[in-house]
Design a protein around this nucleic acid. Structure first.
Lengths: 290, 290
DNA sequence: TCATTTATCTGACTTAAGTCAGATAAAACT
DNA sequence: AGTTTTATCTGACTTAAGTCAGATAAATGA
């Protein structure tokens, strides 16, 4: 146990000296860290002065001075917010966009360098996802999204890859009954993503047909997020949404090669029923009355 | 690829806000970060003022002033180094040890908290080891050590566990020909550890008997360090040491359940020979003339 | 309408951190 | 022995960061 703590502290040392170097590398462009942080916040789309101030945890006086500094450097312009002219909004000028792009390039180069000098970049990325998800586990949010958006496709692709690995026969989505995207968009259904600071780490689809019966599809949680009860959160949210859409019966199919899925369904009020479709992959079928 | 970079940058955000909070938590004890860092360096056994200065990257003037500050606080004493009185060495006073213990407690609590709030602490630790090893891959050192030391046992235990997992029959070290520790200590042999910032990540034993023939035993590299050519480095160093001990022939045994090991031996000048012992586990035997 | 609240700004501070040019004394070199 | 190098210290700076008490102007509420 003490040994474990040593391992964590070694990790802390490693990242503060390496990742922390990113923070200070911002100094490489000759601008104090405070100004650089404000400039980057604006570049990343934060417009409201107050929002930036809270985000960066700055005193109002300091914030004001940093903004004045960036203004005289010609990197930003500020003006009153149209809906409340006490508030001010900041925007990058042409020169500001150029400076911001420099910072982006620096960050990206540093990230690329980490990947390039390691023989197993995939393992590194997975480990980073696991740690970042663990550190941010209290800030995981569930959002509704169009299943054709890239974030959704990111999850679905990984879901299909996992089925390919875990089914003895492999998995080809073209042989499966791939739901129409519009069946998983309101008002017929919904597609939910679990997001951890901009990274999608889980999904579930509610596929409706306009009637009182709908199907749960594509429940998946990233390996980085397993154990955090995310599948339960996604299912609960999907069921709540279904109720709101006037649905009273939910069905789903699954495969006995995914025992943790069946266990979850059994534990949360689903009961096994007879086969209700001719999809070649599933061998277990469940139903739940809402 | 762009996506990968986003994942790394998300990781950077997560650790700078969480691990960076550790840095600033040091401020919680009311001492400026600079003084706290010096105090902790001394607490961790760094005595030489110059060494601390290089380690923390401080200007000599600043360093001097920080030391004076800690001295007037009554936390350290400084004096000339016995072997070169230009240099100075710093030591904690009783009060200094108490203050240092407070910082240790803070760091340990923070580490413990990370483990406690995650359902899969082992995965988190493995991921942290992988990333810390990757970030510090240029600072991996190979050291000689007594195989009965805890760092060596840490590696050997993991080695045995891996054999237990990978051999169809499992692995019981008591049934194997476990070498005498003294056969792996100079002048008969040597035991080598690969260290990444205080974490042992690989080992190899050179087991000699005083004569010109010796055996390579217990070659193992932590999953966190695979792909970094560490096995090759360990073997090269072991062979070099063997030459220095007047050994001209090396032998080893291995098992075909570890194909990557046999591949390494073949690639680096070993040739397969007939069985030379009656250990129940190995089924392949190699020899190399130095 | 008038007092109150809210968002930001300004000026006058403090503290931490870092830089740089000597000063000093011991060690190393010739 | 005398010069040079090395390790540390001191004093006189600069810069970044942060604090705090008002000032100002727009929005809100009674």
């Amino acid at each position: 146990m003490t040994d474990d703590i040593q391992r964590i502290r070694r990790f802390n040392r490693a990242v503060t000296s390496e990742v922390g170097a990113l923070d200070t590398s911002f100094l490489g462009l000759g601008r104090p860290l405070g100004s650089a942080r404000v400039l980057n916040a604006i570049g990343h789309g934060q417009q409201e002065v107050g929002a930036i101030r809270t985000y960066l945890g700055l005193d109002s006086g300091l914030m004001s001075r940093l903004l004045r500094g960036l203004e005289t450097e010609g990197l930003i312009t500020t003006g009153p917010s149209p809906d409340d002219s006490r508030r001010r909004i900041a925007q990058l000028t042409e020169a500001g966009r150029a400076a911001f792009a420099e910072y982006e390039r620096l960050s990206n180069d540093q990230a690329r360098a980490i990947l390039a000098r390691h023989p197993r970049p995939k393992d590194i990325l997975d480990a980073m996802d696991l740690i970042a998800t663990a550190l941010g586990q209290d800030r995981i949010e569930i959002i509704e999204i169009d299943p054709r958006e890239p974030e959704a496709i990111h999850c679905l692709t990984q879901y299909y890859e996992e089925l390919e690995r875990r089914f003895a026969t492999g998995f080809d989505v073209n042989l499966s009954r791939d739901p129409e995207a519009t069946d998983m968009i309101r008002p017929r259904g919904v597609f939910l993503l679990a997001m951890s600071d901009a990274l999608p780490i889980g999904c579930v689809g509610l596929k409706g047909g306009g009637g009182p019966v709908a199907e749960i599809k594509r429940l998946w949680v990233s390996p980085a997020a397993r154990g955090l009860k995310l599948a339960t959160r996604l299912m609960t949210r999907a069921e709540d949404t279904a109720r709101g859409l006037g649905i009273d019966t939910l069905r789903l199919d699954t495969n006995s090669a995914l025992p943790e899925a069946a266990a979850l369904y059994r534990k949360s009020g689903w009961r096994e029923i007879d086969r209700f479709n001719d999809d070649p992959y599933p061998d277990m079928f469940f139903e739940k009355t809402l």
